[in-house]
Design a protein around this nucleic acid. Sequence first.
DNA 1: GGTGAAAGACATCCCAC
DNA 2: GTGGGATGTCTTTCACC
Lengths: 155, 155
Amino acid sequence: MMADLDKYDQQILKILQDDCSVSIDEIAEHVHLSRNACWRRIKQLENTGVIRKRVALLDADALDRGQMVFVLIKTNQHDADWMTKFDQTVRHLPEVVGAYRLTGDLDYVLTVRVADVAAYDRFYKKLIARVPVSEISASFVMEHMKDTTAIPIGT
Amino acid sequence: MMADLDKYDQQILKILQDDCSVSIDEIAEHVHLSRNACWRRIKQLENTGVIRKRVALLDADALDRGQMVFVLIKTNQHDADWMTKFDQTVRHLPEVVGAYRLTGDLDYVLTVRVADVAAYDRFYKKLIARVPVSEISASFVMEHMKDTTAIPIGT
DNA sequence: GGTGAAAGACATCCCAC
DNA sequence: GTGGGATGTCTTTCACC
């Protein structure tokens, strides 16, 4: 799976996943390549899908979504129908920003963004109205110690 | 906490958190404002911190970090010293991309990005060598059903 | 890989409303 | 707050070493 990325590519990626608003000239200066060489590499990284997209990260508090919640879920219905329903439900509920199927004791974990505990309760009622789950527990985030979209490179 | 963002600001933010490489002209066209009005609004959203940063999202597989792991942690040492040590440990371990202190039965959850199960084991050994935890369990992500950095707006 | 040059797109800022 | 227009910077694409 690992594309063959040399140290120049890795350096470029490190910069861009921290701040993609820097100009190509600045990148070229940091990695000690010409502007053109940098540009060509970035284009290729985009075309090969190593760079998936460029997005703005917003302040959740400013948008009244300051409360992040981890929702741990177990099911007793391990059939394809239930899975499809669950899948569609979490995709459509806007509060859900992450949904993962897991190994181990847990079956699923959701990451949910809401304004406050009351808003979570409304979300919870919506969720269980649409798909039955045998066990569900919410853990509210009290402190974000670390939270990055940057993937560790070369460590 | 909620900044007073009108529908124009909200539309602009929706576009940028999905793709920040679009030009201001395109945004202006979509929200039916002049290029200038859009530009001023974006600058203000940046200055007030509603737009925190702009980043490139990379393909974890291409960087050999395709395995995401949720690490659920409980401690029996609820003192400030332990907390400081734990905090510093997760901040310095590059595999950790998210670390959250929670309410409820769990104390902490980490999101970790590694190449595979063997790499997780190496991480696990590093972690417990640096800070004692009374209970720790790893759940490996089998399927990413949803995974977005976009914060739900106006829903 | 590098240079330079040229075209156009783009962000930026001043002005008037 | 809005839009129009001038300006300079940047990206993008050449051809070529």
